[in-house]
Computed example of a mutant assay.
Amino acid sequence: MFADPLDAETPDIEMDADEVNAFLRGQGWGCLTMARDSVAYSIPVSFGYDGDSTFYFQLQTDEGCEKLPYLDATTTATLVVPEVRPPEWTSVMVRGPLEVLTDDGITEALAVIGDNAWFPLAPWSDGQAPTHLSLYALEAEELTGRSSAVGTLTD
Rank of each mutant, 00 (worst) to 15 (best):
F2A: 15
A3T: 07
P5A: 15
L6N: 15
D7Q: 13
T10E: 02
P11I: 04
E14T: 06
M15Y: 01
A17K: 12
D18K: 07
D18N: 12
V20R: 15
A22W: 06
F23P: 00
F23M: 02
L24V: 12
G26W: 00
G26K: 05
Q27V: 01
G28F: 01
W29V: 03
R36I: 02
D37M: 07
S38F: 01
V39Y: 05
A40C: 07
A40Y: 12
S42H: 06
I43P: 04
S46D: 01
S46K: 05
F47I: 00
G48F: 04
G48C: 04
Y49K: 04
Y49T: 01
D52W: 03
S53E: 14
S53N: 10
T54L: 02
F55I: 03
F55Y: 09
F55H: 04
Y56R: 00
Q58Y: 05
Q58D: 01
L59N: 07
L59Y: 05
D62V: 03
C65R: 15
K67I: 15
K67N: 07
L68C: 11
A77V: 11
L79C: 13
V80P: 06
P82I: 06
E83H: 10
E83L: 11
V84Y: 14
P86H: 15
P87Q: 11
P87Y: 10
W89F: 14
T90Y: 00
S91P: 03
S91F: 06
V92L: 07
V92T: 02
V92Q: 04
M93E: 03
G96M: 06
G96H: 08
V100W: 02
L101N: 06
D104H: 05
D104C: 02
I106S: 03
I106P: 01
T107L: 14
E108Q: 15
A109W: 11
A109C: 09
A109V: 08
L110A: 10
A111H: 15
A111F: 12
V112K: 01
I113H: 14
I113K: 05
N116F: 06
F119D: 12
P120H: 13
A122V: 09
W124A: 07
S125K: 08
G127S: 14
G127K: 12
A129K: 14
P130N: 11
P130D: 13
P130C: 09
T131C: 06
T131R: 13
L133A: 02
S134T: 12
Y136R: 08
Y136D: 10
L138P: 07
L138S: 11
L138T: 10
L138G: 14
L138H: 07
A140F: 04
A140S: 10
E142S: 03
T144C: 06
G145K: 09
G145F: 10
R146F: 08
A149D: 11
G151Q: 05
G151Y: 04
T152C: 01
L153G: 08
T154E: 08
T154K: 03
